[in-house]
């Protein structure tokens, strides 16, 4: 564990807590893409299959349980409890256009052609594009609530911090995982225009409103 990865995990944790607070306090899921949350649930389920078979540390297990628990709770809030406030018309990204290519790529490009490894690779590739339905929804509605912007900033920062973690681990431990790094770079790049909007607007107390 290193400071970059710890900050990354805390940023990820903060993003999930911000999202839950937004939903619980406002009792509304307006502006939140249910499809992205379903993709994140798929990512965590595929990645944490070893939750019960390989024990790394208390921290690792607790975080995995928390991530899986909260993402399914988020889906419950979106599609059941606060279903009336879910904006399905704007959450219209065709996720099959993500899942099929990512699934195919996981079969073709992986570290080892073994079931658990391919499923892990699938979760890495899927995570790098899982935010697209959410970004697409914001571009369609033309705006994002400030709290949603904070959620996205924390979520985007988590993988950017993981990139720093991989640089550190490369020099400190000689650890290098090309698949995770390339997917992490793609994932972080997807947030760049949002980061720009966040820093130029939200940091100055303005709301993010894209030219619809």
């Amino acid at each position: 564990m290193n400071i970059f990865r710890l900050c990354g995990d805390m940023s990820h944790l903060a993003a999930i807590i911000i999202l839950l607070l937004k939903m619980w306090k406002t009792r509304s899921v307006a502006g939140i893409s249910g499809k992205s949350q379903i993709l994140f649930a798929t990512v965590f389920t595929a990645r944490y299959l070893d939750l019960f078979t390989s024990f790394i540390s208390i921290y690792n297990t607790c975080m995995k349980v928390f991530f899986i628990g909260t993402v399914y709770f988020t889906i419950y809030l979106i599609y059941m409890k606060f279903k009336a406030t879910y904006d399905s018309n704007h959450d219209s990204f065709r996720v099959e256009f993500l899942i099929v290519p990512v699934g195919g790529l996981a079969f073709l490009v992986n570290h080892e052609f073994a079931p658990l490894e391919i499923i892990w690779t699938f979760s890495i590739y899927l995570e790098s594009v899982a935010i697209l339905p959410q970004l697409f929804m914001i571009s369609k509605t033309g705006e994002a609530e400030t709290i949603t912007s904070h959620y996205l900033f924390a979520l985007g920062s988590y993988r950017a911090l993981y990139l720093c973690n991989w640089i550190y681990r490369y020099y400190a431990e000689g650890f290098f995982d090309l698949i995770a790094v390339v997917a992490g770079v793609v994932q972080t790049i997807l947030y760049c225009d949002f980061f720009y909007l966040y820093i130029t607007k939200v940091m100055k107390g303005k709301k993010i409103s894209l030219p619809a």
Partner: peptide
């Protein structure tokens, strides 16, 4: 090879 490496990251 990374495959044998235990996945210790979240």
């Amino acid at each position: 090879e990374n495959a044998t490496l235990v996945k210790d990251e979240l």
